[in-house]
Nucleic acid binder design. Sequence first.
DNA 1: GTACTTATGTCCGTCAACGTACAGTGGTTA
DNA 2: TAACCACTGTACGTTGACGGACATAAGTAC
Lengths: 239, 239
Amino acid sequence: MTIAPPIFHPGQNDLIAAFNGKEWSQIADHLELVALPLGEVLYEPGISMRYVYFPISAIISLLYVMEDGYSAEIAVVGKEGLLGIPLLLGGESTSSRAVVQSGGYGFRIKTELLKNEFNRCGVIHDVLLRYTQALMTQMTQTAACNRHHSLEQQLCRWLLLSLDRLPTNKLLMTQELIASMLGVRRAGVTEVAGKLQRAGLIKYRRGHIEVTDRNGLEIKVCECYAVVKKEYDRLLPST
Amino acid sequence: MTIAPPIFHPGQNDLIAAFNGKEWSQIADHLELVALPLGEVLYEPGISMRYVYFPISAIISLLYVMEDGYSAEIAVVGKEGLLGIPLLLGGESTSSRAVVQSGGYGFRIKTELLKNEFNRCGVIHDVLLRYTQALMTQMTQTAACNRHHSLEQQLCRWLLLSLDRLPTNKLLMTQELIASMLGVRRAGVTEVAGKLQRAGLIKYRRGHIEVTDRNGLEIKVCECYAVVKKEYDRLLPST
DNA sequence: GTACTTATGTCCGTCAACGTACAGTGGTTA
DNA sequence: TAACCACTGTACGTTGACGGACATAAGTAC
């Protein structure tokens, strides 16, 4: 038996919702609903891509993968954003990889079409540039957090950022995956996650995480989370 | 006695050199040469600024300063770039601070004037967006480098990035300052710098660093330096 | 030249995270 | 039901950087 895909509409992506003008309706027809299954690689470093993605229920992780195989998450993109900013900025490719961190659905559109609208320098242009700045804030904070904060704080930040981009408080995530996103040992994640569980903040079950006390996480997390969230709210108030 | 400021012209900034069209000449007259002395703070988090800066001989460091006073460098801007991208992206302010890391000169122009030209979506617009992407690459690499690489590698990267933005191989820099840029202990910098000096790569003298074997640094440095450099060259080939 | 400030060199105990390894256990498949 | 695999829990020694402290040396001011 096959399960019918859930019914989504483009406006569930916050950026698309913010476009909603005449210029947008011209290309809205070209949006295409796609499944974004866990682990799918959407962009690979140095490769120029044909589509940009507006996630709805999926979360995409921007990772830098080093020569020795170690990786580090730079930012996450969910329904508040767009995957493919470099395509609009004119650079085509990036040095990072985009991987689906939490499976779901999204819309995609041919790069050229969005680029054409972007280059008219109307609402779409302005919204996307503000989003670009929000993304830069996230990168900034990742860099600073990597330097100074403990694994526990970083995990809290990661959980909250993910939660903000999901409809539920449940994540499908193994500790192995989280570790590779954060660029730390799996055993380190186990330790810290156990601590959070004993404190009653989360519940763990083989690849399922449930956040049971969001407030508690917000108390434990470092400032980085709030800085990013505040900046997204400021730059993209519609969301 | 007063020393006359060196004679600079705007084209010494690589971005301005790339503009050189009719649209640019309209506002070129409004450029103003300014001294950028070591330590001067050009942008403060959350404050909207009146000018954007095109460095010529100075280097500006983008720092995120945490609540507890610890800081981390996110990126550096020199004659290859522009300080004030967030002003153009529409967000006005950022969460980071911009500090002159190496004293020198630069040109500045009122934000509004550049913004107007930017919004015409011509050459200036395109060049600045490509620069924005280069800056994002630098942030990405900083985040990844902070996570995985040793202090020694990071210092090498920092020296090389600085060197690329200076006319000489000499830096005016105390270890204390470098430490606060990298977000590490001063004693840590001393150790590593001593090691580099004994290896004959640099020469130290109370606030003066001279790189005597650039090649040696490039061998020791992590991949992060090359990734950033390559991306700048690719995105802004005129430089 | 002397006193003073500022930068650098070095040491020590501490600690978070590392790499590695292995045992348990939940869920799936045969 | 049994076998198996993938995920999780835990342990151990190692290590790079930390916080803090103090000594030395290089410039600067008097």
